[in-house]
Design a protein around this nucleic acid. Structure first.
Length: 321
DNA sequence: CGTATCACG
DNA sequence: ACGTACGTGATACGT
């Protein structure tokens, strides 16, 4: 609402800017300084291993899984996360892990081919949907495809997509129909998860971990629809959570075996691991980290798409990420 | 204590 | 007909 008014009046923008700064100061700048442990001069979070229904970790007191990154002002807070003297921070994150898992789980040939070829997945989706050659892809068309890809993973609705893209529900519905025409396997996957959750009250990940969805039993149609969308999302989000957990379990041993005893695993942010390493060990650490993360599904599951990890070392978290 | 808002993946 | 994008946690504020 204020965003809309800000286009034509001065005051709403001032208020929105104030809100953003006030939020960042209260939630991060002030609170994180308070959270510093005087004994270690560091901030120590708590991870809940069984809090999120999908199998993700949750971080609290303080939450270090929602440190700002999307705005320049916010990134200044991330820049304050620095390593010890003589060390670097290494951030290693899975590239598009949820869409890769969707391609595998749903057995979607078009998506699997795109990942095998190392394509920009949102551009490839846009090309397939809107009949635009990859070489001529424009940012706006790619942006729409990206929103659709997110929507698919969330258990898409015309309302949600319309809201996200600022278009009307009719147009959003047309996008969704086109998407299902081009990627028929996705609809089959969604229908299968809906049937599974209706019959059993739960779905499961590739690794066999179960996700119970009691909302599917509600007498409210809206709540049941909510349960269906959760059932579509949970095997994807949950498999990604399983994979990074497997990587984390193996990581200390792998680092030790490589003679990298000075490297510490510090944080997990859903598809990212953050490490602190002696400067001289950073290169070798990145190689080990990438190998463990990219191979973390094995041997339990042989994925039909490659997992790709981007990793970088730097003097603060913002530059490493 | 619940709600609105907003930070992240 | 319904009312919604999936998963979290922290803060401000009203009760």
């Amino acid at each position: 609402m204020l965003e809309e008014l800000a286009l034509t009046h001065e005051l709403p923008r001032v208020l929105l800017d104030w809100r953003q700064l006030s939020k960042l100061k209260g939630t991060y700048t002030d609170a994180l300084v308070e959270a510093m442990d005087p004994a270690t001069d560091r901030i120590h979070t708590s991870y809940q291993l069984a809090a999120a229904s999908t199998g993700r970790l949750a971080s609290s007191d303080p939450n270090l899984q929602n440190i700002p990154i999307r705005t320049e002002t916010g990134r200044q807070i991330r820049q304050a996360f620095i390593p010890a003297d003589g060390h670097v921070l290494i951030s290693a994150d899975y590239s598009q892990i949820e869409l890769r898992l969707l391609a595998h789980i749903g057995d979607i040939p078009e998506l699997k081919r795109a990942f095998a070829a190392g394509l920009d997945i949102h551009a490839a989706t846009a090309s397939e949907m809107f009949n635009v050659p990859l070489a001529e892809m424009d940012p706006e068309t790619r942006r729409r495809a990206k929103a659709i890809n997110f929507g698919i993973v969330y258990g898409i609705s015309a309302f949600g997509l319309a809201n996200q893209l600022g278009i009307d529900q009719g147009e959003a519905g047309a996008y969704i129909r086109t998407y299902f025409e081009r990627f028929p396997g996705i609809r089959a996957y969604m229908d299968a998860m809906k049937a599974k959750v209706r019959e059993t009250g739960r779905v499961e990940t590739l690794f066999g971990r179960r996700i119970h969805i009691p909302a599917i039993l509600s007498k409210s149609a809206a709540e049941r629809a909510f349960g269906e969308r959760a059932a579509i999302n949970a095997p994807i989000q949950g498999a990604a959570a399983d994979i990074i957990r497997r990587a984390m379990v193996r990581m200390p041993g792998a680092l030790e075996a490589a003679g990298l005893s000075g490297v510490k695993m510090l944080l997990q942010v859903h598809d990212e691991l953050v490490f602190e390493a002696p400067e001289a060990e950073a290169g070798r650490a990145i190689a080990v980290i990438r190998r463990v993360m990219e191979g973390a599904a094995e041997p339990a599951v042989a994925l039909s798409v490659p997992l790709v990890v981007d990793a970088r070392a730097a003097g603060n978290w913002d530059e490493a990420h």
